[in-house]
Design a protein around this nucleic acid. Structure first.
Lengths: 212, 212
DNA sequence: TTCTTTTAACGTATTTTGTACGTTATATTA
DNA sequence: TAATATAACGTACAAAATACGTTAAAAGAA
């Protein structure tokens, strides 16, 4: 046999947007190596398990998050990326709205928490590289519909959506051009409802248009 | 241990363009399963081997091709994609000009040959899916420079390049617009040479501009 | 030598897409 | 009802993509 002793894992970069801040979901590891360090949620793929399903399972077991749209975005297979064993990892990414999900640490996660991207420093293994790859991927894919699914609440005003895009892309966007774009590309649909309780003119609410 | 007995392989879709035809490089398998069938070149990744390097090594061992720019384009990990064992495969793709490379079957390849895409029917395992994924990837990536590196001869007339694009994209392209595009995007550079021996007006030769 | 055939080379007008930019409208609170 | 805060919107300009027909240079035939 040409090959053996190789392990396959999945790691997840789950990005969340809340209070105009971009956050990533991390777990505090409850096992070696790097025990007690914060890292991306990840675990081994079972031998009889489809990789996409493994990603969903692992994310759910570690963090309690379920039913999110996970995109496979890369393979991380450097020989020494993980100590002791050769572990090749498939990276998945999702963008979600933290307020829509309840966190529950499980399996080898001692804790789960959202961390502001700006506060995240050194992560174990090649997890920083994974985070960077995810951010890059996101900038390329952000105008496609399915990615937004779990990111915004069901109904939202356009300026909230615009702030989200600005955070993700790290730029400012002209509000008129932003409106034109999301409407012409049929990303959103205006509802007959407005925001309430603000201290100023209310805004129309929108919802994501389902992809055709 | 949560997982074991999982294998990692690499498969390669090598596309070539010759005589205005798009071709794929296949090997005749010299081992089970699917012995004597034509399939994509592929083999196991070694435990102590970087995946990109594995792709280069495997391609070279099976087909004799070396020094090509291989792009990683996907992970194929369905549980039953391969009989008997769980093998997850990483797919690599390259586009090359057949005339620039000499083929030499080796390792578990009994033969190597270019096959017109139109002649390729059922391939073993999920190799048809891999081929489709490659074609799709290619349509998205075709305007980026490095992909063309080994596809055209060193010097070529623009109409040859246009035919190539038309084959790959399966459309017709207006020749004036095509010229405008490749020049404005600085993909090519005109040489002070013309084609010879044709039975009509000679064409200027171009070369690929090296990426900055 | 000139005429015919074949393919190369090229420019302009139009449409579509993206960008820049300032004013008016509608709610709340004082 | 006046002041404040934010939502909503349209137009002019630039850049990119598309559609389209004519002239130019060689080879081969008459």
């Amino acid at each position: 046999m040409e090959q053996s002793n190789l392990y396959l894992s999945v790691d997840c970069v789950i990005l969340g947007f809340e209070d105009a801040q971009l956050k990533a979901l991390l777990i505090k590891r409850d096992k070696e190596p790097e025990k007690d360090k914060w890292s991306l949620p990840g675990a081994y793929v079972h031998t009889d398990e489809n990789i996409d399903n493994a990603a969903k399972r692992i994310l759910n077991e570690l963090t309690g998050i379920h039913d999110v749209f996970l995109s496979q975005i890369g393979v991380f297979g450097e020989v020494n990326r993980y100590p002791e064993k050769r572990v090749v990892s498939i990276l998945y990414c999702a963008l979600i709205s933290p307020e829509l999900f309840e966190l529950m640490a499980g399996s080898h996660a001692k804790e789960v928490a959202w961390k502001n991207l700006s506060e995240i420093n050194v992560l174990p293994f090649d997890h920083n590289k994974m985070l960077n790859t995810s951010m890059q991927w996101l900038k390329n894919e952000i105008w496609r519909k399915p990615i937004l699914q779990n990111l915004l609440p069901e109904k939202f005003p356009l300026n909230q959506m615009q702030e989200l895009y600005q955070s993700l892309l790290q730029t400012t966007i002209d509000n008129r051009n932003f409106r034109k774009k999301v409407i012409s590309q049929e990303l959103v649909e205006r509802l007959n409802e407005k925001t309430k309780g603000g201290q100023q003119r209310p805004a129309y609410l929108y919802k994501l248009k389902s992809p055709n």
